[in-house]
Design a protein around this nucleic acid. Structure first.
Lengths: 221, 221
DNA sequence: AGAAAGTGGAGGCGATTCCTCAACTTCCCC
DNA sequence: GGGGAAGTTGAGGAATCGCCTCCACTTTCT
């Protein structure tokens, strides 16, 4: 409000971009568990430079992911553009998983959507109604089993991307196979068992908090 | 071969049992990631005592789990005693998950079965043929989809028990719900998608190695 | 050329885990 | 009941890891 931000010196600007580039790679590989030291090393700059530009890990994460989360919103819009609700839902699942498997940082960021963990929880205001509609369309056409709801989506995402991580980057067939298995479980079918009551918002928050590495380190005391 | 093992002194014997009792609890809660210091503290003895009795974490794990893994074998036998192959398979899945959700150490041990990670890989010689038969029966009766095989079982186990851990001990409904979803995905059904080629033994080993904490700490250099 | 901005990376700090060791205690057997 | 072997203890050494600071040095800008 009261500040004018000075333009960066040319070398500083160049380094800032190098850092973002390196951070992209490092966070893709390690998710929020990446360290700023690691980023600095990959960028070929000193750690001090990284900390001068991005005083906390959170600031760097913001710069990296804030707009990329919008891609998920357009993905959901694409899903709604498909005529079939089922195809919309499954396309959304498959493509989201692919994005998250390739970039674990994006996965961690996306899981923070809709929970109180980080301020890009705000993206949820755009995304959640869209997801709700994706689910609703599939319910309406009777293709998605009735006892599956929006709160199951983060769990599926977290689980399948965890498997993707454990199986390394080399064999995407593995997590894809597992996702297809789950997708077949989502189908409304006569023989299906009973899933019981839906997950609560609190359930999801607790699980996601536990699945995503902490963004802020312990502050020195 | 050449040694006679001396009987323990009475206090040592008492302490050994205390340690095993404490280890049961600590490993149930933390799995192979439990520390021997933690066990000592819970047992109310000094760490030195634990290290004297169980020189490595592996020795303690052996003493804790070697025979309990046999329970999984009898569970598989129970599954084969059921008239329906499908019921056998799903009963096996459900009950194994319950055991592993309650005792994370048992989960870690069970995941080592059949891979070269620990010598109770040998239990696999008893267990794997039984599992193969559980799967085979369900295939034969046409209830289990044909493109699911024995190598999918460890993945399902690892995934669902991971979810159980992330959701804390308080809400078993959560992992049960997810397991039921997967079970419904396992059913042979006309609309099912294609899972692609089965997992290889190597796939499973790589994933399990990555999912189970290392048993041996880094040796001092 | 001088001042302001930026840089590097060794190293302090605190946390975590492993495991040892030497002073002390308990037990067992004669 | 006494001697010596067996057992116990827990502080602390050593290694690792991640966060972040600090200040002597370099680069840019005017």
């Amino acid at each position: 409000m009261t500040e004018t931000t000075r333009p960066l010196r040319r070398d500083a600007q160049r380094n800032r971009e190098r850092i973002l580039l390196a951070a992209h790679d490092v966070f893709a590989a390690r998710g929020f568990a990446a360290t700023l030291d690691d980023v600095a090393h990959h960028a070929g700059v000193g750690v001090g430079t990284v900390y001068r530009r991005f005083p906390t890990k959170e600031a760097l994460i913001d710069a990296l992911f804030a707009d990329r989360l919008e891609d998920l919103v357009s993905l959901a819009e694409d899903a709604l553009a498909l005529p079939s609700g089922w195809d919309g839902l499954t396309m959304l699942l498959r493509r989201t998983i692919e994005m998250h498997a390739v970039d674990r940082g994006l996965r961690d960021a996306a899981l923070c959507i809709g929970i109180g963990k980080h301020h890009f929880a705000e993206v949820g205001e755009h995304l959640l109604p869209l997801l709700q509609e994706v689910i609703g369309r599939a319910h309406a056409e009777g293709s998605l089993r009735a006892d599956v709801g929006i709160n199951d989506l983060p769990i599926i995402m977290a689980t399948v991307t965890d498997l993707a991580r454990h199986s390394g980057g080399g064999r995407p067939e593995i997590y894809r196979r597992f996702l297809e298995l789950i997708i077949d479980g989502l189908r409304a079918a006569p023989g299906n068992g009973d899933l019981g009551p839906a997950l609560t918002q609190d359930d999801v928050e607790a699980i996601v908090h536990d699945c995503v590495p902490p963004i802020e380190a312990r502050r020195r005391g």
